[in-house]
Simulated assay, not measured.
Amino acid sequence: MQTQRLSPSTVFLLTVPPLLWAGNAVVGRLVRDLVSPLTLNFVRWVIAFALLLPLAWPILRRGSALWPHWRRYAVLGLLGIGCYNAFQYLALQTSTPINVTLVGSSLPLWMLATGTLFFGARVSGREVGGALLSMLGVLLVLSRGEWQQLLALRLVPGDLYMIAGTISWAFYSWFLVRTHQPAGIRQDWAAFLMAQLVFGLGWSGALAAGEWAVAAAHVDVGWPLAAAMLFIGVGPAVVAYRCWGTGVQRAGPQAASIFMNLTPLFAAVLSAAFLREPPHWYHGVAFLLIVGGIVVSSRR
């Protein structure tokens, strides 16, 4: 997979998803008392499926290019639609959008690790140094500015859920560019997303069913929840995934992961505006460390 330089259109494509995903984190935090997290994830993708169906229904026909390659799209659906979003909504039950998105900014570290261990990617010493610098920023967030908390392992469950989700997203991004995509799917963004969504919907539905079977799941039906679900079903789901998939294919997963670090910045602004959760001093320092690590690792 050859990548190209970051053109203005590619920069735009990779900037839109962090903004929408920051909004997704804020909305997920707002409705955490109205709907169970795994149910929220499932309903989100039901809405996205309904929106994409008029555009991509031919991909579901028996003779389409999807079915000979169904295994790879089942994996993409599990990692990018089932696992990542489920972990994020679980994280937002006990952690703030700023914390969740900052922990998610450890993506370049996991991208380097998964690329080296599982996809044969070469990693330079500069990239390792930059990833470690970024990881210091993540550790600062996990410790809430008190390093001794790391020694005591006093992490909220949301932090651990988000780490698991970020690892899942790293695998998803590598699979995007290291697995063969049939031309009929690769060249049509709606078909490309639907190919993942048809399996991701099954994964997220199974997780939601498990939530109702073993936990105190709930849905408080009303206009606030309906509006929230409509937003996350259109923006962070369809629009953001469309932009991210195209941007990753153009720039490559390592370069694209840089733009994920815009998410905490957008989340801080939106949290202050809608949740009255202003950032703390360690959020700012952590953001500088994370971005500094990215600058170090990406310099030539």
Rank of each mutant, 00 (worst) to 15 (best):
A131K: 04
R122T: 05
V138H: 04
W147C: 12
A216L: 06
A183L: 11
A213F: 05
A121M: 10
V35W: 00
L136S: 07
I81N: 00
R186E: 11
L193S: 01
S105Q: 00
P8K: 13
W57N: 07
T101S: 12
A251H: 05
L13H: 04
S173L: 13
L92H: 05
T246N: 11
V295S: 00
D188I: 08
F49K: 09
L132Q: 11
C243L: 09
A121S: 10
S143K: 11
V295R: 01
N261K: 08
F192N: 15
S64F: 04
S297Q: 07
V214P: 01
Y172I: 10
Y241E: 03
A170R: 09
L107K: 01
Q254Y: 09
L151K: 10
V11C: 12
F49A: 15
V43S: 00
L289H: 03
Y241S: 05
V100L: 09
M260L: 13
V100Y: 11
R72I: 15
L140F: 10
V291R: 07
P68N: 01
E146P: 10
G252M: 02
A227P: 08
T101C: 07
W244Q: 07
E211D: 04
W110G: 02
L78E: 10
Y73F: 15
M260R: 07
F259Q: 03
Q254P: 04
V296Y: 02
N24E: 07
L76I: 12
R5L: 12
Q148H: 15
W110H: 02
F118C: 08
L30C: 01
F287N: 14
L34N: 11
G222T: 13
R29K: 06
F175D: 10
G23C: 02
G63V: 10
W212Y: 04
H280S: 14
G129C: 10
Q254L: 13
L176V: 09
A215Q: 11
F12G: 08
L55E: 06
Q88M: 15
S106F: 00
H283D: 15
R178E: 14
Q196E: 04
P279E: 12
G293C: 00
L13M: 12
G284M: 12
G292N: 00
V239S: 04
I185K: 04
F42G: 03
L13Y: 05
A65E: 07
G233Y: 03
R126T: 06
L30F: 03
V123D: 02
A91D: 05
L19W: 07
A131N: 07
Y161P: 04
R72A: 14
S143D: 04
